[in-house]
Design a binder for these strands. Structure first.
Lengths: 216, 216
DNA sequence: TATGATTCGGAGGGTCGCCTCCGTTTACCC
DNA sequence: GGGTAAACGGAGGCGACCCTCCGAATCATA
């Protein structure tokens, strides 16, 4: 699991540089962009790419790992908020903005899920998010029929707006506003048409065996 | 522009079959899936594929055209609703469900936009949607700071949930509920953080020259 | 059914991207 | 500086995919 780090400075530098350029390349040209072009962009020979990452999947996995590490950094602020509702706001806003600003993320996530469908990305976070939802609902601020899975999906939806490019990011907060208003407990809230799902059920459903889904 | 239709029944049958299989193939394997495989799935030789569609882009365009035709079918119901608010509901729900249920659509739309960035997909619809928004706002049902562009983006967001596969579709209405509640005019609505965009501005922004965005 | 025009099938040439291999270069350590 | 181990570069083999080509098969028409 732990990647062995070379003791040579040039090797470390190339490794980092390749990761950085790969994120950008994947964002621009898709997760199946030619690795020879990655080599060119990183100013490196093709051999160097394959020494650091035996194949495309290894590269994708490492990008994924670095994203998960970033994800951990959000936890303190989100979970440490004054109120449960503020936690919900921060959860949706911070994570949504992060995904929207990291256009390579959705494809990387999807590919990792295909490589290992049993892997549950943030399983250790799930109880925390459940707790966060319960707290906000206990306050009477978050509508009672919303689940933690709903929140995660809303983050995905907001993150998908990264497709419009960086110039859209300022406007992104408009959709955020609408979604957060829709999450608020209020008189006259529309009842949910179907019951929600638990994390496990949602995971099993969306990772059901089946052909690779459409890139978006 | 009008595609000439062959007088031979086998040719027409193969053309339709190729379109049908292409939609499914693109949904499963992405818009760059091998056309040789399309030929295999359609039970047809490679030559037949290329006689009907000179290249991948022609195929994509024709799928796009058929989608636009479908789109037109929604107009009467959406615009003919009793109230402006009901129009908004139908707009978001019908189109969102359509996109979510057509996993090939987002990639096809994006590719056509790349092929011809000046092309504005539903330019003739834009005034209608603007009118629909104005009507719902005049009723006091739709929040006053929402624009027609916002509505279109929300449809996109809801449509992106097609990525979870067909089994998710029933649950999809939960997110729809949240979004619609967020659109409702109410006391205590959170003010928008930035002003909205007109269709033209949004189009120019999201189609700014630049490298191909990440497939999702 | 016979005829001619149209479409079909699939082998194969050309291109592009993946990945390996090995002579050369670079970094670390003394 | 000198020696050694590690990393680098990029040419090239290989396979996958795109697309063409033409003899064979099929369809419309009479």
């Amino acid at each position: 699991m732990t990647s062995s780090v070379s003791s040579r400075r040039d090797a470390r530098r190339n490794h980092e540089r390749l990761l950085r350029e790969a994120r950008q390349l994947f964002a621009e040209r898709g997760i199946d962009a030619p690795l020879d072009e990655l080599a060119a962009r990183a100013g490196v020979g093709a051999g160097t790419v394959y020494r650091h990452f035996p194949n495309r999947d290894a590269l994708v996995r490492e990008i994924y790992d670095s994203a998960v590490a970033e994800l951990h950094d959000f936890a303190p602020e989100i979970l440490g908020a004054e109120t449960g509702w503020r936690s919900v706001e921060l959860y949706v806003e911070r994570l949504g903005a992060w995904v929207a600003d990291s256009p390579y993320l959705p494809a990387v996530m999807r590919r990792v899920a295909e490589l290992d469908p049993t892997h549950r990305p943030g399983a250790d976070f799930e109880p925390l998010v459940d707790g966060l939802v319960a707290r906000a609902q206990a306050e009477g601020a978050l509508r009672a029929d919303v689940t933690a899975v709903d929140l995660g999906i809303l983050v995905d939806m907001l993150g998908s707006l990264g497709q419009y490019g960086g110039e859209y990011l300022p406007f992104w907060r408009r959709q955020l506003t609408i979604v957060l208003d829709g999450l608020r407990a209020r008189p006259g809230t529309t009842p949910m048409p179907v019951p929600g799902q638990a994390f496990a059920a949602f995971h099993d459903m969306s990772h059901a065996k089946g052909p690779r889904p459409a890139p978006r």
